[in-house]
Nucleic acid binder design. Structure first.
Lengths: 120, 120, 120, 120
DNA sequence: GTGGTCTAGACCACC
DNA sequence: GTGGTCTAGACCACA
């Protein structure tokens, strides 16, 4: 897996895990890979995965059974969606609008770019 | 001036300088404040301003006359705009589209949000 | 290590690093010393080494893995050679020819000096 | 006049003055422009020209009559040539040979470059 | 542990 | 006066 330098790796791994859950590859109440396993898979220090799991547990997307492993929470999917939507509408979108304003970019341009993006 | 903790101060100062240039408050071929002056103005260490100027010189937005000071480059405005647009269309926008896709958000929603944003 | 006062230390360290790479003492994709280590080795402030690494990363000679360290880029050797040759043929040599012309020095004289230099 | 950023302006002005003398445009025992005049001509601070004249006086290339101005020394030409040749053979040339060695550049390459330079 | 940023203060060459 | 470099020491996020 390749990482973007502008975002902490542990958050990128969180996205990766959420993606797995949303696609139902890791299903509700099921066990997810151990910190060591996932670390080996993604070629990343286990500590970093640990941080991801910590974060996801805080958001109630996964939970821990001591000595056994981490599991997908029942409410995982809805929490992921809520988390993402909140982030999107309260941070990402306003920032976008600000730069659009600053650069004089219209919604029309965004629209045509979006259509090009969809075809890709 | 207040600084956002999520972005290096020297880059926020760069934005500040670019803004001045775009608004024509600091005009083409004109001298801009010395690192010491601007540092005092913004309550920031001169070294930090130095780093900003270094960066902006690399982007060919300002240039230096030795022992005299820094000046706005002839091509400053176009370089600023180019820099910002490149960043916007090749990074910010694709990331936006990706999350839109992932969250199932349509362009219609964006549009209504944008109108709300404009009224604010 | 001793430093020449006529050239910034951070650039002399850059030369030092490039030399290591060219001699294959620090090999492609391998990790190079941390800013703290090299700083201690060369009896130089870590910030100064940091500046060197910054510069070399800009020239795509080394690259960074966050939280882990700096590594020799795959294309390091060719980039070093290209950098040096460009500098030599487009700046150093023309300046030499200009002064040769001004002083009426012939290529023959250069040649004999060069042979003397090689024997030294 | 345009200045190279890698060399102090006052030394570049010194080169300019020496060139005038060597070409006999400013002849032996003749008066040369005042600090203010030359400064205006070259669009440079008079202080900087002053520093040039100071330096050239130290090298016995020009001399000063108080209240009147600066004049070309009788021994100017020979001192210029001596100064330049010394600089060339004891500094410039050894540095050249070093980089040639480091980059594996042969005298043959230099020769062909030189011929190309002469035709230009 | 790593790099990245920032401050405070110093010294220097140059204009 | 200007920028440029360097040091010492601090704090932070990240791995």
């Amino acid at each position: 897996m390749e990482f973007d330098n502008n975002k902490p790796i542990y958050l990128q791994i969180a996205d990766f895990v959420c993606d797995k859950i949303l696609r139902n590859e890791w299903s509700a109440a099921g066990r997810i890979p151990s910190v060591r396993e996932l670390g080996a898979d993604l070629q990343v220090n286990p500590n970093t995965v640990m941080r991801t799991y910590d974060y996801l547990q805080g958001e109630e997307i996964i939970f821990n059974k001591r000595g056994i492993g981490y599991f997908v929470a029942e409410t995982a999917v809805q929490n992921i969606v809520k988390l993402n939507r909140t982030e999107f509408f309260s941070h990402q979108l306003p920032m976008l609008f600000n730069t659009m304003n600053a650069l004089g970019i219209t919604l029309e341009e965004i629209k045509s770019q979006y259509e090009a993006f969809l075809k890709k």
